[in-house]
Amino acid sequence: MLTAFVNINSFSQVRVSFDAVSAETGSEEGAPVGPGPNPISPEMKELVWGAGSFIVFLILMRLFLVPKVRKGMASRYESIQADHEYASATRDGAQADVARYESAVAEIRSEAARRLEAARQTLDKERTEKIAQVSARIAEQRAQAEAEVAASRAAAQSQIVSAVTAVTTRATQIAVGVSPDSAVVSRSVQQAMEGKRS
């Protein structure tokens, strides 16, 4: 109540003093005039200018400026969002390409390994074949040589037998004077030699 009373009171005072000040200011341009305004009560000219500029500012902001700035912000957020989506889509595509490339590489690698294995097996087979051939030939030659050896040994043995038979026959003829039966001699010589050998 006190403040309201005081306000009303001082408001009228200020009205009066405002009129006085403006009247004096109109007359001379110089140092500040009058005792100054009441520090509490509002002054009419300040109220009018403050209210007017605020209302103009508010209308401008409300109707044009803030919606425009806000729309710009929203559109930029949307474009950033769209860019994000585009980037993630591109990244997914690139990752799919990488996966495809890697699967192709794996396929080719396995194909190469398969071919290598096949070639290796072919070579292996040929090698074993060649080795078998060669060892067969060696065995053949060895058998041939052994046969030759046996033949020559048999020939030599028969020569020795005939020689020993002749010698034995001659020795017996000299010792006994009777020429022995050559068949018996040769058989006994043969027996003696084979017994000795075996």
């Binding site: 403040t3 005081v6 009171n9 001082s10 009441n38 520090p39 509490i40």
Partner: peptide, 10 residues
């Protein structure tokens, strides 16, 4: 604070 100013000036 306002009341102080009022006491002094009003």
């Amino acid at each position: 604070f306002v009341v102080v100013i009022l006491l002094k000036y009003a």
